[in-house]
């Protein structure tokens, strides 16, 4: 409980919590529409992407750690899966640019703290928890000596 939430994720959480339930879905939809495109270098290399098996829709993610130890997370999910896209977009925006240590310190239950559990079934939120877990795992892989 002592892990401080990075400013980017705290802002996202606060934005959701300030809204009533229907508007939270609307904000999630905005995130969904705003999922960044996959960088050119991965578009032709689906083999580099990791399938997130826990998600109810085909979602793939890729994590980069740049020379300054900053994390960048990219994901793809189909337009027919806006909820999954929204989850991926929250994490892509919220984690992008954080340091390795900051990402690894993000509480694993972050997805349960942004006020979506009443609007979205708990099963679906677990997909976002899985996305976060797999992102951290890739960060560890890429920073292992």
């Amino acid at each position: 409980m002592t892990n401080p939430l990075p400013e980017s994720l705290r802002q996202i959480r606060d934005d959701f919590l300030e809204l009533g339930q229907p508007d939270r879905l609307q904000l999630l939809l905005e995130f969904s529409n705003d999922l960044p495109d996959l960088p050119e270098r991965y578009r032709d290399h689906p083999d580099l992407l990791e399938r997130v098996e826990e998600c109810q829709s085909p979602v793939y993610l890729f994590v980069e750690v740049d020379d300054d130890s900053r994390v960048h997370m990219y994901a793809t999910a189909p337009a027919e899966a806006p909820t999954t896209r929204g989850f991926a977009s929250i994490l892509s925006h919220g984690l992008g640019g954080l340091t390795v240590d900051e990402v690894l310190a993000v509480p694993d239950d972050f997805p349960n703290t942004i006020g979506l559990s009443a609007a979205i079934s708990p099963l679906r939120l677990r997909g976002m928890t899985a996305l976060l877990g797999r992102t951290k795992r890739q960060v560890r892989l890429r920073t292992a000596a």
């Binding site: 879905l25 939809l29 969904s32 109810q56 027919e80 609007a119």
Partner: peptide, 20 residues
């Protein structure tokens, strides 16, 4: 997917969210 309706639906259709 409880957001699909918001991305576009049959004109005039209402949404019934199985969960809420």
């Amino acid at each position: 997917d409880v957001l699909l309706y918001e991305t576009g639906h049959i004109p005039g259709a209402v949404k019934i969210d199985w969960h809420t």
